[in-house]
Design a protein around this nucleic acid. Structure first.
Lengths: 146, 146
DNA sequence: ATGGCTGCAAACACTTTGCATCGGC
DNA sequence: GCCGATGCAAAGTGTTTGCAGCCAT
């Protein structure tokens, strides 16, 4: 529980990237706080390393995303949220305040209302994959990472 | 089929808003082109009304969203996409180029691959609604429109 | 004619990038 | 010691806003 980002460190080293204190801290924060924005992550990081810059946060997030260990999402807000890849992606997004709740089990509306106090008014489903054209060009937004 | 935005016009007039040529044109464009970005909409609009400004596009989109007739979404890109509210919200988002396809029937992966040439690699589900706190405050991001 | 609507440009929020310095390997 | 990583600040996007003039009502 202390240092879960073992896979993250491995991913970095696997491509010859350096394991810096900044990156370790950021990986820890991302791992322990689901769907946070870059500015929140930065604010949290500054509590432990006051001199860390926002650019480093963005650069690290982008790097980790390219390595496939984190995933960024626009959850209806005007900024991105970041989380560990492969975790559940069923989110409850409040149309009032934009708050995001995680749901981990297959659910029904009554169950959600009961368990999370969240009233579902609409759904939005995105299937991510590769379209015909990109398949032909074998193009993918992060596959080209050296 | 010629002028489907009848409901849109009604929505405008219902709240005492004016029915201008710019707005009619924009409503037409939005109605006929699903999930387009603001800049695409602007570009299209300029073909018919060269003097239309980008600010008008944004202001109109925001107005129509507040009226509940269109809906904006961040489909993995760094800008918003707009479409008529209530239409299907099952999207196929290409991880290569970001292109978005609409799917209208309940489907399976094999069916999607066959019908749309799109290889599904992951899914993302958002349930939109009202969280407990906002329910208590009866707060909602667009309910407060005058 | 009157008040909302528009174009223009400046302001904004989030994110990326250039450059000199610092530090992991 | 080398080359990558960082901080800072400037540049880049997409979106919003202030203001003077315009046009539906």
């Amino acid at each position: 529980m202390t240092h879960p980002p073992a896979e993250m460190r491995a991913a970095l080293l696997a491509v010859g990237k350096r394991l810096t204190p900044d990156r370790e801290l950021l990986m820890d924060i991302i791992h322990q706080n689901p769907h946070m924005g870059a500015l929140d992550i930065h604010r949290l990081a500054q509590e432990k390393r006051p001199r860390i810059g926002l650019a480093t946060v963005y650069r690290t997030l982008r790097l980790l995303e390219e390595l496939g260990v984190v995933e960024s999402e626009r959850l209806g807000e005007d900024h991105s949220h970041y989380e560990i890849r492969g975790r559940d992606h069923l989110h409850l997004v409040c149309s009032g305040c934009g708050k995001v709740l995680d749901v981990s089990s297959p659910i029904d509306r009554a169950g959600i209302a009961c368990q999370y106090g969240f009233t579902v008014t609409g759904a939005r489903l995105e299937l991510v994959g590769v379209c015909a054209a990109c398949r032909r060009n074998s193009r993918s937004r992060f596959r080209s990472a050296a």
